[in-house]
Amino acid sequence: MGTIVEAQVPASEFALGDTVTAVPDASFETVRTVTAGTDQPIPFLWAATADFDRLDEALRDDDSTDEVTRLVRDGNHVLYRISWQARVRALGHFVAAEDGTLLDARLHGETWKLRVLFPEKAAMSSFYDTCRSYGVDIDVSRVNGLESVVRHGGTRLSAEQYEALSEALDADYYGVPRGSTLVELSDRLDVSHQAVSERLRRAHQSLIESSLHDGLTPDEPHP
């Protein structure tokens, strides 16, 4: 069964480590295109910073980049096309070697957050072992079965989080005034009210992150 992995990699061991040191307020996210089996992973990046001239210079001086082209500016964001040095391309090869697909990559602070789709769990394990063997300090934070992601509306919710949200909606928990309490939800789900509260908080966080990242993009300005 397909597996979606969420992982973190230090920028210093992957890409743009020099840039985030030189321009610490900069943040980056990929243009949301599926990248599979490519020699140049994440070729397009939206960047946000207070000083784009300084960022341009830092990107071109970064030892992980080969060629940097500023394509367009839209408000507080700039779109770059970047060709990478071998170190960055290597991780792309590690993904492709396991028939994986890089779905998403974001850099904020000094850490890249990646989402990778693998055809099966064994491929994910092999990818992880390869990264470690080459000295890449990758940290896997979440593993979801593809069936679960599709079944739960394409979100990053776990089955338990999805169930808790569904029950909360059915019980009018989000009504004003509330139509039910955490204790009543816990009775419906047959778990402690603390467990219900934790599942709802994590579900809310996942939905907010998905909405902000996938809905409010630089090319779709909102007031």
Score class of each variant (00 low, 15 high):
Val31Cys: 04
Gln205Ser: 08
Glu163Trp: 00
Asp139Gln: 14
Ser186Ile: 03
Leu189His: 04
Ala123Thr: 11
Ser211Arg: 11
Asp170Arg: 14
Pro43Phe: 08
Glu184Tyr: 01
Ser133Cys: 05
Phe28Trp: 14
Ala26Tyr: 07
Ala164Ser: 15
Ala168Arg: 05
Ile4Tyr: 14
Ala86Glu: 14
Pro119Lys: 04
Ile4Thr: 07
Ala22Lys: 12
Val23Trp: 10
Asp129Arg: 12
Ala159Asn: 12
Ala15Met: 10
Arg156Phe: 11
Gly100Glu: 01
Ala15Glu: 10
Asp99Leu: 00
Ser166Pro: 02
Asp214Pro: 00
Pro43Ile: 10
Cys131Leu: 14
Ala47Lys: 06
Ser64Trp: 08
Leu79Gln: 04
Leu114Val: 02
Val150Lys: 10
Val20Met: 09
Asp137Ile: 01
Phe52Gly: 00
Gln40Ser: 03
Ser64Asn: 07
Arg60His: 06
Asp62Lys: 11
Leu169Met: 14
Ile208Pro: 01
Glu67Trp: 07
Asp53Cys: 01
Leu59Ser: 09
Val9Ala: 04
Val34Arg: 14
Arg54His: 11
Val136Tyr: 15
Phe44Pro: 00
Leu189Ile: 07
Phe52Asp: 10
Leu114Arg: 05
Cys131Asp: 11
Thr217Asn: 01
Pro119Met: 03
Tyr173Met: 04
Lys113Glu: 13
Ser211His: 13
Gln194Glu: 13
Arg132Trp: 14
Arg178Thr: 02
Gly37Glu: 12
Arg81Met: 10
Ser64Met: 02
Glu6Asp: 08
Gly175Ala: 12
Arg201Cys: 00
Glu163Gln: 13
Ile42Gln: 06
Asn76Asp: 13
Phe127Leu: 10
Ser180Phe: 01
Thr101Gly: 04
Arg73Met: 03
Trp112Ala: 03
Phe14Cys: 02
Arg115Ile: 00
Glu67Leu: 09
Cys131Gly: 14
Asp53Asn: 12
Ala164Trp: 06
Trp46Gly: 00
Asp74Ile: 12
Pro41Met: 02
Asp190Thr: 07
Arg70Cys: 05
Asp172Gln: 12
Asp39Trp: 06
Gly37Tyr: 04
Ser210Tyr: 10
Tyr128Trp: 10
Val95Tyr: 09
Ala22Pro: 02
Val149Tyr: 05
His204Met: 05
Val149Glu: 03
Asp74Pro: 00
Gln161Ala: 01
Arg188Glu: 15
Ser210Asp: 15
Glu6Ser: 14
Gly135His: 10
Trp46Val: 01
Thr30Gln: 15
Asn76Val: 04
